[in-house]
Design a protein around this nucleic acid. Structure first.
Lengths: 137, 137
DNA sequence: TTCTTAAATAGGAATCATTATCTTTTAAAT
DNA sequence: ATTTAAAAGATAATGATTCCTATTTAAGAA
């Protein structure tokens, strides 16, 4: 996993730094689509001197280079996702919990639907579901 | 429309103030899911003394009372929607444009799909599509 | 209509996530 | 080992949003 990431960095012409690796691993390990602050806290256990600005800069550049994604929320605090494959999100109405939801059949159904049904004046590139509700327990 | 809004405010036990009416009308008139700043600018043409804090507070309370909705984005600036009926959003990859997308057939297909396919440990309350792509022109 | 009062607004200071700036360090190519 | 552009660190600045408090007002009661 770290190997995949190192390769990807090189591909994109980005230097492989310990900070970048640590930040990426933080996103992977921290489930629930962490905030920058979550990442900083996590990374500081192994890199106590890491700078806040560095974390923000790295997150931005990884998103720009498609190694991470931002998660759309109704909050002004950004959250990140290391899962790049096509998937949807379950949003809890009562907490900040956000979980990934993968469903091949659903993807296929939707992609079929939009093969026929065109949206006028709009070229669809990607479709994601925001599924809002309540987790049990 | 203003009438509907006044009634709704009363229903919720909220006072009908000129500021609230103006802010609500701003959201309705400003297409493209305005930010708080867009609203402030718009409302100031008729209410030059309106306070920034008031706009934020009103927006919050209208969202809380289900007279407005927040739009999920990847930005740290909040955007609002006065359309309460079930609809989806078209997000432009290149600009900040976000348009409503209504599609009864789609709603039905998805709701049928989730009538059978249950998500484990999760009770679905609402499903929205984020459709990302490019507008023509 | 006037009175009463809790709710709402105005104005401005404070907060806090994020950005920007500038200096020092470092990855990695030569 | 040298070189150098890129990256990181430290910290100041920014800007959207929230907080605070005095003043005003909507709306029910008299």
């Amino acid at each position: 996993m770290a190997h995949f990431f190192r390769e990807k960095l090189k591909e994109k012409g980005l230097k492989v730094t310990p900070q970048r690796v640590a930040i990426y691993e933080a996103i992977v390990n921290l489930k629930n689509h962490p905030t920058a602050e979550n990442v900083i806290e996590y990374v500081k256990t192994n890199h106590p001197n890491i700078s806040v600005g560095t974390v923000y800069k790295v997150l931005d550049s990884l998103v720009e280079n498609e190694l991470l994604k931002k998660v759309k929320t109704e909050k002004d605090i950004m959250r990140y996702d290391a899962v790049l494959s096509n998937h949807h999100h379950l949003y809890c109405t009562e907490t900040e919990r956000i979980e990934d939801y993968e469903d091949e059949n659903l993807n296929e159904m939707i992609s079929n639907y939009f093969k026929n049904k065109k949206i006028k004046n709009f070229k669809v590139q990607d479709i994601k579901l925001q599924i809002t509700g309540k987790f049990n327990k």
